[in-house]
Design a binder for these strands. Structure first.
Length: 437
DNA sequence: AATACAAGCAACCGCATGTAC
DNA sequence: GGTACATGCGGTTGCTTGTAT
């Protein structure tokens, strides 16, 4: 429990003024049990939201943001405690490959997990891998992305510029179709076969999972490794500039030679070595964390659950077992927040996000870590040997992951340029992924 | 036993966005 | 349209804990 060591952690910012002269001193630092109790009681009475009112109603010397964070990350019901399961780890990697540092959206796919938790987990993992000189993702993924981006760059040179977003979209459609028609280094998703779905109605909705080949920029550096995401490269390859035309972007930084020489098997071995190198420490540490977590969880969960917060909060606007705003289990979690986030996006990204949400809503209907169903089924898949989708496994649509894992990744047929590139970010790639921690 | 270091985690901060007025 | 407020997200910081030397 935080409060157990909270007094020791007071050193940073406890009872500090938050700037406002007339403002009462707002406490910072770890929360105490008493504060948790106050906050829980408040939420029981008033529900979530209006966090700034907490201080007024309860006298709790915490700012609204702090209250919201405390509730969301620690006090709300149905929070999972403890280490990530292997399935969760696998899903995090997949989601990060797809979404980048979209922690909230990732958390939406991991019921009971918070964005902060996932972020911490990823950052820890990333630092570890960087230290070990390992790529963040299996090399297969990097090679796929590198080859694809090079190809996109070449294709772009022959593409024309456009002047409106609609034109940009149309160009993108042509662009994608062009890629599809060419021999691809990727296993293209079936969605490529019907990219203009819903487009003719003028909604500007691009039905294809446009994010499937996007190369997001890894904010966290990445040590020279190519940040990878099987998402649409479109805004990156032909980015809309101020003139609403497309500007080519510089080629990505190629993976280091060491990384390139690292096959997926090597990746796995390296991962294992990376872990083993610190295994003793980490396992012990992990055990320590588990112990701590268990201790914290036992008290915190008792505190929260014994108060039956879930039912009370749920009454304020949702499932009795799920507090308002806690929609993780329905697969549309954080829709309010993600929609809010979406507003910040560029139009194309916005549309990608729409597709993302579609995907995610479907994803959520499957068990965590399950292969993604065919979101955009198309009969011509077989013709192209397409069996990937959005960078996530699409080997099966029934979510039978065990079956997927046992089945070798047959990959594509005619569209496969080389065995190395016969990759899909599917379960066949991840099923051997060792536990990260 | 003391110290240094790394990992994990909780919490804070800055910023962007939505909403109400 | 402008402003204030509320909310949420991603990045960062700093503390605790465990391990190695």
């Amino acid at each position: 429990m935080v409060e157990s060591n909270g007094e020791k952690r007071r050193s940073h910012g406890d009872h500090q003024e938050d700037g406002g002269a007339a403002e009462p001193a707002l406490k910072k630092g770890p929360w105490t049990t008493a504060e948790d109790g106050i906050l829980i009681e408040y939420v029981q009475k008033h529900g979530e939201g209006n966090w700034n009112a907490v201080q007024k109603h309860t006298g709790l010397a915490r700012c609204g943001k702090s209250c919201r964070l405390r509730w969301a990350n620690h006090l709300r019901p149905n929070l999972k405690k403890g280490s990530f399961s292997q399935e969760e780890e696998r899903l995090i990697i997949e989601l990060h490959a797809k979404l980048g540092n979209k922690w909230a959206r990732m958390a939406a796919q991991l019921p009971g997990r918070t964005d902060n938790e996932i972020k911490n987990y990823w950052n820890t993992r990333m630092k570890r891998r960087q230290r070990a000189g390992l790529p963040l993702y299996p090399l297969d993924l990097q090679q796929e992305a590198t080859a694809f981006q090079l190809r996109q760059h070449q294709n772009h040179r022959s593409s024309t510029t456009t002047t409106t977003n609609v034109s940009v979209l149309r160009q993108k459609l042509e662009f994608d179709n062009n890629i599809q028609n060419s021999v691809s280094v990727f296993n293209f998703s079936s969605t490529m076969n019907n990219p203009q779905k819903n487009f003719s109605d003028g909604s500007l909705f691009y039905a294809a999972p446009t994010n499937q080949f996007k190369f997001f920029t890894e904010n966290n550096g990445g040590g020279g490794f190519l940040p990878l995401s099987p998402v649409s490269p479109f805004p990156q390859i032909g980015q809309v500039n101020n003139n609403n035309s497309l500007s080519p972007l510089p080629l990505p930084v190629l993976p280091s030679q060491a990384a390139l020489q690292l096959s997926y098997g090597g990746y796995m071995e390296a991962e294992a070595r990376s872990r083993n190198g610190k295994q003793t420490k980490e396992e012990s540490s992990s055990g320590g964390q588990l112990k701590r977590t268990a201790e914290q969880g036992s008290t915190e969960e008792q505190g929260a659950n014994n108060l039956n917060v879930g039912s009370v909060v749920g009454s304020s606007g949702g499932d009795a077992a799920v507090p308002a705003g806690e929609n993780h289990s329905d697969g549309f979690s954080s829709t309010h927040s993600s929609s809010r986030k979406r507003q910040r996006m560029e139009p194309l990204e916005e549309m990608e996000s729409m597709v993302d949400d579609d995907l995610m809503s479907l994803l959520s209907n499957f068990q965590t870590g399950m292969p993604v169903p065919e979101l955009y089924p198309n009969n011509s898949n077989d013709d192209l040997g397409i069996n990937t989708h959005n960078g996530l496994s699409l080997c099966e649509t029934n979510g039978n992951r065990d079956e997927d894992e046992q089945r070798p990744n047959v990959g594509t047929t005619s569209a496969v340029a080389s065995p190395v590139l016969e990759w899909s970010l599917g379960s066949s790639c991840w099923n051997n992924m060792p536990s990260i921690c």
